[in-house]
């Protein structure tokens, strides 16, 4: 049977899946608490902008640039500040909100009783979970796009559009033109999206087990925190590849020159595989569990 005829045969199922995915997005974006993360990002970004502009932070950066033979006024720009703003938000806020939403996806519905209403209908558990997971991926992408977009917009209000300077101790030190910088800025967000979706998938996995939404979120955050702590212990230097935060830094490596594509590719594969594994473990746990009121 040709691919076209197979697709035609499956069209009603594809349409139904699209409807179910749309429902999941309605549920996700219809909730006020979904927007708490976005609001917190906006506040944090503005607070950081003001701190950068009116404290020694800006002066220290200028000194670093001057010390390396660059003209500070050419590189203290909207793009530079946008990346500086991203780093703490990606370490602190992004995991928190991705885990919060991921932890809610299944466990909150089970807690509220709506999951029982859905599973009284002829929909397979796997299909239901897949649509939820996909909605979670869409949410991660939207969250990261808003985060990156607003960071750049706010930074542009306070700083000029000039060259880009990216510095992360031990990883990146690079200066770029505004054009190259904005392209890399957009490109790095693809990797941030992958990171956010992996964190969300981790919380999603826990929420597929019989537990409260808060417990799923806390477990996911604890896992990440333990990873981060262990990664920082010198004894574990040779086990860096086993720690998720090590791979999450691929977005920063995009700004390196020359670009370490092999390292980025490796981390991308690890994070994507982690995401898929988390989904499959969650799906297996959800499949065998009893759904009771």
């Amino acid at each position: 049977m040709s691919l076209v005829s197979q697709l035609k045969r499956r069209q009603p199922q594809i349409e139904m899946f699209y409807l179910q995915l749309r429902n999941e997005l309605w549920k996700l974006f219809g909730k006020k608490r979904t927007y708490i993360g976005f609001g917190a990002f906006l506040l944090a970004q503005n607070a950081m902008l003001l701190t950068f502009r009116f404290t020694r932070w800006k002066g220290d950066l200028e000194k670093m640039l001057d010390g390396n033979g660059y003209l500070a006024q050419d590189y203290v720009s909207a793009l530079t500040v946008a990346v500086i703003m991203l780093i703490p938000q990606i370490i602190l806020l992004l995991p928190l909100y991705a885990a919060l939403v991921g932890g809610d996806l299944v466990a909150k519905e089970a807690e509220d009783g709506t999951l029982r209403m859905i599973l009284a209908r002829p929909v397979s558990r796997f299909r239901l979970l897949f649509s939820k997971w996909l909605a979670g991926m869409v949410f991660s992408a939207v969250l990261v796009l808003v985060l990156g977009g607003t960071a750049l917009v706010f930074a542009s209000i306070w700083f000029p559009w000039k060259g880009m300077f990216v510095f992360a101790p031990g990883m990146v030190f690079n200066v770029l033109s505004a054009n190259d910088g904005v392209i890399l800025y957009i490109f790095s967000h693809i990797f941030i999206m992958v990171n956010a979706s992996a964190i969300l998938a981790l919380a999603f996995m826990f929420s597929c087990f019989n537990m409260k939404p808060a417990a799923a979120t806390i477990l996911a955050l604890s896992y990440l925190f333990i990873n981060l702590v262990m990664e920082g212990i010198p004894f574990f230097d040779r086990f860096q590849n086993f720690f998720l935060p090590h791979h999450f830094r691929m977005w920063l490596l995009v700004y390196s020159s020359p670009t370490p594509w092999d390292r980025i590719g490796e981390s991308l594969c690890v994070v994507l595989a982690f995401n898929l594994t988390a989904f499959l473990i969650g799906a297996a746990a959800f499949q065998v569990r009893d759904i009771k009121s």
Partner: peptide, 12 residues
């Protein structure tokens, strides 16, 4: 099916 204390998405 209808269950005791039916649950819905209250915000919708």
């Amino acid at each position: 099916a209808i269950f005791e204390s039916p649950a819905f998405y209250d915000y919708l």
